[in-house]
Amino acid sequence: MRDGINIANLGIPAVALVTEEFWAQGDFVAQSLGMPAVPRVQLPHPVAGTDTVTMHKIAELVAPTIIQALEGGDD
């Protein structure tokens, strides 16, 4: 979340990928760093240790949303 905000602060389009378990923390960090509307996309939790097939499925699921967010659309 913090990386996404730091990159956005550099003027580079950014979208933070946040797992559902950390969604509330993402909101907190976005608020505390003064960028509550920073684009973010929710992933299932956990991602760490996920097998390759499942990871590809997740990627296919969220890729359009990530692209939409980077293009400035609603997430």
Partner: peptide
């Protein structure tokens, strides 16, 4: 620091 379990202290 506002560390609260489950939302900012993970």
């Amino acid at each position: 620091g506002k560390a609260r379990p489950g939302s900012s202290d993970m």
